[in-house]
Simulated scan of single mutants.
Amino acid sequence: MAYIDYYKILGVDKKATADQIKKAYRKLARKYHPDVNAGDKTAEKKFKEINEANEVLSHPANREKYDKHGEHWKHGEEYEKAQQQQRQYQQQQSGGGFGGYSEADFGEGGDFSDFFQSMFGGSGGGAGFGRSSGGSTSGKFKGQDVSAELTLHLRDAAKTHQQTFDINGKKVRITIPAGVADGQKIKLRGHGNPGHNGGPNGDLYITFNIAEDKHFKRNGDDLNVNVEIDLYTAILGGEVTVQTLEGSVNLKVKPETQNGTRVRLKGKGFPVYKKEGSFGDLFVTYVVKMPTNLNTKEKELFQQLKDLQNG
Rank of each mutant, 00 (worst) to 15 (best):
S118Y: 13
D40Y: 15
K297R: 10
V240N: 06
N62F: 09
D105S: 10
F270P: 03
D213Q: 12
F279D: 00
K274Y: 05
S147E: 11
N62T: 05
T207M: 04
T175F: 01
H215K: 10
F165S: 01
E108T: 10
F279M: 01
G195H: 04
Q243Y: 03
S58V: 03
D105R: 02
E78P: 06
K254Q: 12
Y79V: 06
L301C: 00
L282Q: 09
D111F: 12
G139I: 01
A234S: 14
D13Y: 13
N310A: 14
L154R: 02
N293C: 08
Q163T: 11
R264A: 08
G269V: 00
D281V: 07
K217P: 01
G11N: 12
H75P: 00
R264H: 03
L265W: 06
Q83D: 07
Y205T: 00
L150M: 13
E103G: 12
V36Q: 14
Q86V: 13
D40A: 08
M290A: 13
P194L: 01
G126E: 12
V240R: 11
G237W: 04
R189V: 06
T261C: 01
P271L: 05
F141D: 04
K185I: 07
A18K: 08
G135K: 09
L231E: 15
K274V: 11
I50P: 13
R173V: 02
Q117T: 05
G11W: 01
G11T: 04
G135Q: 06
W73I: 13
G183T: 03
K14A: 04
A158T: 02
F283V: 04
I167V: 14
E228K: 13
D307M: 07
T257N: 01
T151G: 11
F116E: 10
G128A: 15
G121T: 01
Y32K: 00
Q258T: 09
I186S: 07
P194C: 00
K268G: 03
D111G: 04
G126F: 14
F116N: 13
Q163C: 04
L231D: 15
F270W: 08
T160N: 04
S133P: 15
N168C: 10
G139Y: 02
L251T: 00
Y273N: 10
L154I: 01
K22L: 15
V288I: 12
K214P: 11
A82Y: 09
A178Q: 05
G220Q: 03
N37D: 03
E52P: 06
